[in-house]
Amino acid sequence: MTAGRRDELAASLAEVRERIARACVDAGRPADDVTLVAVTKTYPASDVVLLAGLGVTDVGENRDQEAGPKAAAVRAEGAAPRWHFIGQLQRNKARSVLAYADVVESVDSVRLATAVDRAAAGRPTPLEVLVQVSIDGDPDRGGAAGDDIWRISDLVAASAALRLGGVMAVAPQDWDPDRAFEHLATVTARLVSIHPEATTVSAGMSGDLEAAIRHGATHVRIGTSLLGMRNTLR
C-alpha cells in the first residue's frame, strides 16, 4: 500500500464528498443524510483498507467469488467496513454471500428472498435486505416490478432473520436520471407507508448521484469517481 495510492484515494474521496455535500445543499437536506458506499469491485483489498482508514464505512461488491476472499483479507488487516452485496445474487450463492455481507441490496424475487431468509437463519442479528426495484420493468436488467415489490417486502419484513431496509435501483442508461429516480421515490413513498422502517434508498452512482440525492437517495454507490479507472491503477 503506497503513500501515493493513499493520496490518490484521499483526493478522490474529498471530491466525491464535496459533490454529495453540494447535492444535499441543493436538495435542502443535511449532508449526513447520505451514506457513501464505495464500490470496490475489481479493486484490491489494499484499497478497501486505505479507504477504511480515510473514514469510509461502507463498501459494495457485486461478485461473490471476488468479495469473499477480499472481505477476509480486509478483516485480516484489522479493518471492518460494512459490506454491501449489490450484484445479481443466485439463490445457491446466498449462504456464501451471507458469510461476509452485512447488507444484501439486490433481492428482486420472492424465491430469492426465501433463499436469503433460509441462509440467514441463526445469525446473531438480522441481515439487512433492500428490494431491488426495476425502473423500466425490463426483466433482463434485474429488479422487481409491480406487485412483486410488495410481495418481497412483506416477506422480508415478516422474517425474524431479515430486516427490511428499503429499496435499491439502477437508473437505466436510456432514461433521464431525474425521471428514473422520481419513479423510485414514488415506490419508496408507498413502501414506507406500508413499512415505516424501510427508509433506505440506495440509488445513484458516479454519473448521476446528484439526481439521486435530489429524489431522496440515502445511499450512493460510487466506484469510478472514487477509485479511478481500473486499468490506470499502479
Rank of each mutant, 00 (worst) to 15 (best):
Q90G: 12
H219K: 02
A198M: 04
L13D: 05
S206K: 00
T188W: 15
A158P: 05
V48I: 15
D174P: 04
L112P: 00
G68R: 11
R17I: 06
P172K: 02
A10S: 13
A99Y: 01
L227W: 06
T114L: 04
D64F: 11
C24P: 01
W150P: 00
D138H: 04
V131G: 04
E210G: 12
A3S: 14
M229D: 14
L162C: 11
L155C: 03
L209W: 04
A144S: 15
T200R: 09
R118N: 08
I222Q: 00
R19E: 11
A180E: 00
L54T: 14
A27K: 12
R214P: 01
G122Q: 12
K41L: 01
E210M: 12
V116C: 09
V131W: 00
T199K: 05
P81G: 02
L130N: 10
V116H: 02
S225P: 05
V110N: 02
A79V: 04
L226M: 11
G228L: 10
Q88Y: 13
A121I: 11
T2D: 07
V37T: 09
L209G: 04
H84F: 09
D136K: 03
D47V: 12
R29W: 04
E77L: 08
A21E: 06
A211E: 13
A10P: 05
Q90P: 12
D136M: 03
A45V: 01
G166Y: 14
D138S: 10
L164D: 06
Y43C: 07
Q90E: 15
P139I: 15
F181P: 00
D64E: 13
N231L: 06
L130Q: 08
V49I: 15
E182W: 03
G60W: 01
E210V: 14
D154N: 10
A38W: 03
L162H: 13
V39R: 02
E105C: 15
Y100H: 08
Q90F: 07
E197V: 11
A31Y: 08
S206D: 06
